[in-house]
Amino acid sequence: MNIKEMKNKLTTEQASDYNDLEKMSTVELLSNMNAEDKTVPYAIEKAIPSIEKLVDVIFEKMSNGGRLFYIGAGTSGRLGVLDASECPPTYGVADDWVIGLIAGGDSALRKAVENAEDDTTLAWKDLQKFNINEDDVLIGIAASGTTPYVIGGVKKAKENNIVTGCITCNGASPLSLEVDYPIELIVGPEFVTGSTRMKAGTAQKLALNMISTTVMIKLGRVRGNKMIDMQLSNKKLVNRGVRMIMHEINVDEATASSLLLEHKSVRNAIDAYNLMK
């Protein structure tokens, strides 16, 4: 079966369960979309065993100095870049530890780049710029599971002994069949037929949240329930850091502020105070 034939069988491409959308009132549109969105967490729940397997191998690789890569096109690519870009400020990791790549490059984050996702060789070229190797893990993100850019990337990665995973919203897709650790989030037809920025995009975002957050917790980037390594890049985050310190070591605001100013991070401030005791 070729990709064109496969697309005709994809649940993400099937007709919406709703019709005559233009005749619906505003509240009907909103309520029906919300009803569809409520089904997404159940699709995630079914996939938790698959997510667990991928998280554990990512943790193992990153514990030994490896990195995590995401590749995707369109909405899927943007979600990968978003997740990767939020790891440094949230967990204080280097910006080359989790890397998101989108077909067509950074300009594709704002505007579609014609034919970029149809190039089966482009993803590997993009990945080679970062010297991806067998210490790393690559996750391909594609709602349809048929995106040539993503399939070409994971296939070449496997040939080079790199662990591969995927996040897709169709069962037994070409992408799933190419990777070591497939995650399939079967959300069914979209409210607007084929608009995978909706339920499929939501499901992918939830899965990415779970993957990166769990890995970072396991890597020690959270203490208790707090982001003690977050970057203090604005007043809100500085104030949050002060409150964390106050709560963790039971000191007043002035002491916590002084510690944070001196040690530049919540973790360092707490550890320095505890060493002085």
Rank of each mutant, 00 (worst) to 15 (best):
L259P: 02
L54D: 02
V137N: 07
T90N: 12
K236V: 06
R223E: 13
L54F: 02
V215E: 12
T121E: 15
A108M: 04
D126T: 08
D135R: 15
T120P: 13
P174C: 11
P41M: 13
A103S: 14
V154D: 03
G171H: 06
T11I: 13
D83P: 04
R223F: 07
K129N: 14
T12F: 03
L82D: 07
G241W: 10
P182S: 08
L54A: 08
M24D: 03
I102V: 14
K236H: 01
A15K: 15
S63Q: 12
L275Q: 14
Y42N: 10
N131W: 00
I44P: 00
E159W: 05
Y181W: 14
L237R: 04
A112T: 10
V113L: 11
L10V: 01
S63G: 09
L219V: 10
K156I: 04
I139C: 03
T213S: 14
G140H: 10
L261C: 13
I58Q: 02
R78Q: 04
G65C: 04
L29N: 06
G72H: 05
A84W: 00
S144G: 15
N160T: 00
A143H: 01
L79E: 08
E184D: 13
P49A: 09
S85R: 08
I245A: 05
G100R: 08
N160L: 03
K46Q: 11
A108F: 00
I3C: 07
M1P: 10
N19G: 09
I71C: 05
R110Y: 13
E86R: 08
M246T: 06
V55I: 15
D252T: 01
I51W: 01
M1R: 09
E28V: 06
A272P: 00
D96S: 07
A269F: 02
L122T: 02
V192P: 14
V113I: 15
T255A: 06
S50D: 14
T147K: 09
N133S: 15
Y149D: 00
R78F: 02
C166L: 10
I211M: 08
L232P: 12
H247D: 15
A116V: 12
K158A: 02
V215M: 11
I249W: 02
D119G: 06
A256Q: 11
T12R: 07
V27A: 11
D37S: 13
E5W: 03
V222H: 00
K205Q: 04
W97C: 10
A143S: 12
D17C: 12
S233F: 08
M33F: 12
I245D: 08
T75E: 07
D126L: 07
S258Q: 13
L122V: 08
Y149H: 03
Q231P: 01
N115T: 09
P182K: 03
H263G: 09
L122W: 00
C87F: 02
G72C: 05
K4T: 06
K277Y: 09
E262H: 09
I211C: 05
